[in-house]
Structures are given as structure tokens and as C-alpha cells.
Design a protein around this nucleic acid. Sequence first.
DNA 1: CTAGTTGCAAATCCTTTGCGCCAGT
DNA 2: ACTGGCGCAAAGGATTTGCAACTAG
Lengths: 147, 147
Amino acid sequence: MNDKVKAFEGRCRKAGLKLTHQRLEIYRELASTYDHPAADDVYKRVQKRMPTISLDTVYRTLLTFEQFGLAARVHAFDDRARFDANVSPHQHLACTRCKSIQDFRWEAFEQMESPVEVRKWGQVKSKHVVFKGICSECLRKERKHAT
Amino acid sequence: MNDKVKAFEGRCRKAGLKLTHQRLEIYRELASTYDHPAADDVYKRVQKRMPTISLDTVYRTLLTFEQFGLAARVHAFDDRARFDANVSPHQHLACTRCKSIQDFRWEAFEQMESPVEVRKWGQVKSKHVVFKGICSECLRKERKHAT
DNA sequence: CTAGTTGCAAATCCTTTGCGCCAGT
DNA sequence: ACTGGCGCAAAGGATTTGCAACTAG
């Protein structure tokens, strides 16, 4: 965790981004969780330690992180954006019931060659898979209710 | 095209959905294009032939189509939802510059077995790939400006 | 010092909703 | 006729923006 923050500080300096308390706290929060929080969630959590932070700073900061490759935006559901400090290649599992999002690696996919249409289409920057369905937790709850 | 509409009518009857002019026009519009319009685009286009239609009817109708499997919502960008009358398996190419979205088939991917983590995660309903990058059209324009 | 950042409040954009009237079956 | 669907207007929610005050480098 502290390594992540150290790396983050270095990346900020290199990019010419000022290391403000807000950015540090927001990054720390994002890097310490695997649940892909929405901007609002990040705001609420950071607010506990830094009561004066404002929601728009969180939005602005997350946008900055995204632009500098320090965090990624996840488009699993369309109601609100979700964020991820994990910027190395990985794929997502998204539960349509509880809206949870989980990372997983899929090297067979990541190393697969893209079809010709894709190469002809233009300059690809990223490829990403999303599986949707119902997570086992939600399935369990459902069975209980059905009983 | 007319086949699509005929099929659509059959599917509506079977599902107990009333075949209103609005639904027919919205479906016709969506099925006649490959550009994955947003609700607002559909509204503007349908409005030309049906000036009294309202935007919220378009939203409601697209939602209904989605729920009954008559159309699909595409989550490529997070600003607004995009829709697709193509509900058979296919993947997407999305240009971050012009926001265009293109379909393509990728059978090697579609037939690939999912990793264990996925099967353990829960009950998967769909899997979908999005490639992001810059389409050749945008690249061409960029080169022109750079000259 | 000074440019980049923040906090506040207001604005904007997309999408949804309540309700009375209308239309498809 | 009955019920679902429509149009209108207004609400709701997420995200962005203008601006003055502040702060990291």
C-alpha cells in the first residue's frame, strides 16, 4: 500500500502535478480498495479523514488521475462512473444485481491476436472484457428468499 | 429491413406489448442504422416523421426494448447511453475522438472458454469486448491538421 | 511569487417520474 | 370498455464549471 503511494508521488512529480493533500487522500482511498467506488463513494470515504474536501474536487481529481494514467474509469453500468487504481491489464466481472465489480486476469484473452477488422479500423489503445451476470453472493440470497 | 420490422411485430405480440406507432417508428429508426444512436439522436430522427413524439417516450420505449431483448444498450462511453437493434452476439470498436461505435464479430473470442475465476464468480449472463482507440477517419483528419 | 488547485454555489446534461388523456386490443 | 402507453412538465441525479481564495513548488 505504501509502495503504491510512493509510486504515485513519483508519477505526480514526473507529470508536474502538485502533490496536494486532497490528491494524496483520494489516491490512498482508491488504492486501498478493490470495490471500484463511484466518485461519490470516494468523496464520502475521504471526507471522514478530511472533512473539508468537496465533491467537485473529487470529480476533478479522478478525472486528472484518469488523464495521467494513475487510475481508470470503469464503464460497467451506465448510472455512474466507477474508478479503479489498478491500471495494469485486467478484466471485469459485474453483478447486475448488487452492482459489484470484480477484477480478474485473463491472459489467454489479453494475449490473443485481434481480428483483421479491428486492425483495419484504426489505432487501438485498449481492449477490455466485461462479464455480466449475478454474483454468487446474490444468488445465495435469492435462494434463501425462494425457500 | 422490412423483415426486421415484421419480426419485431411478432415479438411484440408474443410479449404482450402494444404495437403503437411510436414503438414502430423508434424500432424502424434503430434497426435502419449501424451508428448506435443515443436516445436523443433517436428522438430527433423519429421526430422528422412523427413531430409530436416526446423524448421521454423514446427513453421509455428504449428501456422497454432492452427489457424485452429487442434492443441492447451499449456502455462504451459514460456520457450517455447508446442503443443497438442488433441483439445477436457481436463486439464493439469505439473511437474516443469522434465517439463512433462500430460492431464486429469475433468468433474466436465468443467461443473461448472462460477462466475458472469467472465460473466461480457466479452466473454469467453475457460477455462483451470493447476496443477503444482512434478510428482511421479521425487519424486521417489529424494528419491533415498536422501538415 | 505564481501557476495550478481547491471550495463553494450554480449550472448543465441526461434520464426518470407523476399524472391526466388517448389509443391499441 | 380496459389497460397500457403517451405527452407534458417537473423532478432527480450525476457531473461540470466560473470564480475568488489558497497553496505547493
